[in-house]
Design a binder for these strands. Sequence first.
DNA 1: GAAATATTAGCACGACCGTTCGTGCTTTTT
DNA 2: AAAAAGCACGAACGGTCGTGCTAATATTTC
Lengths: 213, 213
Amino acid sequence: MAGSTTDGRVLRGEETRRTVLRRAVEIASVEGLDSLSIGRLATDLGLSKSGVFAGFGSKEELQLATIRAARRIFADAVLEPVVRDAPGLGKVRRLCDSWLAYSRTRVFPGGCFFYEVTAEFDARPGPLRDAIAASWHEWRATVLGLVAEARTTGELRAGADPEDITFTLIALMESANSQALLFDDGTPYDRAGRAVLHRLRADATDPDAPALA
Amino acid sequence: MAGSTTDGRVLRGEETRRTVLRRAVEIASVEGLDSLSIGRLATDLGLSKSGVFAGFGSKEELQLATIRAARRIFADAVLEPVVRDAPGLGKVRRLCDSWLAYSRTRVFPGGCFFYEVTAEFDARPGPLRDAIAASWHEWRATVLGLVAEARTTGELRAGADPEDITFTLIALMESANSQALLFDDGTPYDRAGRAVLHRLRADATDPDAPALA
DNA sequence: GAAATATTAGCACGACCGTTCGTGCTTTTT
DNA sequence: AAAAAGCACGAACGGTCGTGCTAATATTTC
């Protein structure tokens, strides 16, 4: 009987943890994980500093939890809309479109959360970099899986390298995010969309396939 | 008469300013411009905090001076080796190679300085973002100029869009920098090099030109 | 009801931040 | 030789940071 029933105390704790993390991903996507401050979160949310601190135990744990929260939000926004699509180049293309929409509609107010924190920690070893690298690895594997799937369906030319294609697609998306933010201008998203199609067509067995129209 | 002779006082001041900035670009390329702290610079260099502060007047001015110093280093490392080359697609390709070498050899210890600070400030309006955006604008115009040159020499196909090509090339380079740093692995540079050639060949009038071998 | 447990609040700490001020030292100008 | 200019110094300011400690407040279990 113990434990199975909902405990209102821990339930309340998890609720405030969620509240804190919701604000934390917003701040971190704009100013980075280093700019996350426990005192500021507490002030913003009307909580006490020690209360926020107690919910995570340390600043680093708060930062790690923020990364985990961002992963969930990312998966919901980018992956979920396309996971049930039929495999092939069309699915790859729709995934890229989904990603560009995720950046353009500012699911995170600072654009792509992972672009921000990667630049922040890619040259600083430690648990945060490891967590970010793991997130990237998973995302890259997802894209690569879809591209490889398109090869098994015969839509990719013989010489096409799925890894190089994956690298290129991710580069185009990430760069669109960066330029659009920096110049406060949406045209990089259009350029990225065209460049994605350009690359997929170049490596497709049928460049005029309707999925690439 | 006044002013024309060398003033040993201001000369010494400029020397320490250079010393400070040399260290500042290193720190900022790894940890960002926000992590630049006057006290830390002073300790690292054996100077007094107030001395470092006096040399720049404010932290923001120090950050702006750091960006200017990084621009000079970037131009020396990336542009200078190719500026005197003959125009054409080969020059575009060599510029990309020069950039990849600039990242791979860690001219800045944290990889591309501008990748780091762009992610840090692209969603935060202010003088720093403006200075970074101006740097980007200049760099993009440089690449675009070279690509456009390749069109006047007849090396680019009729339908090729120099702006889209420029966007793609920069995306590939920047992404190679990011991935190589995050995973401590050089293969992204190889992927980027291949992808650059892939795109240039796709838009070249002669994909088998020796410059693209 | 009382006891046990988990979340939150209040407060103080040492460290570092950017900045200001007054002062000494060296070099240029008169 | 005297005066002015410019750089670097040490000390101190108010403020924010992360992090402990203790008390108060809910909620559950007996």
